[in-house]
Design a protein around this nucleic acid. Sequence first.
DNA 1: TCAAGGTATATGACGCGTCATTCAATGACA
DNA 2: TGTCATTGAATGACGCGTCATATACCTTGA
Lengths: 124, 124
Amino acid sequence: MATTDRQLVEQWRSIQDAYFRTSCAIDRALEAKFDIGLNEFEILDLVAESSETACRMKALGERTPMTQSAVSKVVDRLEKAGLLARHSCADDRRSLFLELTAAGRKLHEQAAVEHRALLKENLS
Amino acid sequence: MATTDRQLVEQWRSIQDAYFRTSCAIDRALEAKFDIGLNEFEILDLVAESSETACRMKALGERTPMTQSAVSKVVDRLEKAGLLARHSCADDRRSLFLELTAAGRKLHEQAAVEHRALLKENLS
DNA sequence: TCAAGGTATATGACGCGTCATTCAATGACA
DNA sequence: TGTCATTGAATGACGCGTCATATACCTTGA
């Protein structure tokens, strides 16, 4: 294996390591303190960001690496947890708008603090 | 949200994006051409690396972010595929040594080329 | 206005990783 | 030597993400 190959592999492993450590740390912290996982938080975060313009499911799919079907299931869980609501849309009845509930906004606010803190701690 | 927080989040998202794109690209390519996933390849790669000193399961667990039980299952699949063999160890009969089969060595050699190429392509 | 194709979301089967547990083997120490 | 704790690995239940579909709705064009 050429030297550059070895370096590539080392670089990749360190990226993997950083990624895993960071995402696990965040995931566990959110799970423990707020009973939601990292993917759930990220959806909350995206919805919170686009709170001015109502947020369609479709738009979410374009902003995460998650599959459309994964997004649908994450939203399911958030809705069951009472953090998020789906509203059907008169213009196009296939579409759904998403909106944080009061509980969702509150939880997001608190969880975001934790999230940012852990990012700062883990991203060199 | 403070400016630094926003930057943190952007940085994190770009890491996530790079990580997902790279690992998906590798995973799909390996799956398509060699019928093994990324985790399977990484175990093969680790075993191949330590081919001088026989490689214990335990040692693998320490070198990947995977759980011990995940490693055990990946090794199951590789063994079923005839790419890897478990050998019991006389010194400590709880331990297992792992060794690539001829087929495993050959596949690893070919897959590694693909793997390195995709890393080079995806790591800026 | 009607068929044909495209789009937005939901759903079910499936694979994989994790956790908790189990089991056998080893070590430590009286 | 006999207990008790520890260690290496395997296993089963479970949750989640993905793929392939299904379903409802929309759009286009003749």
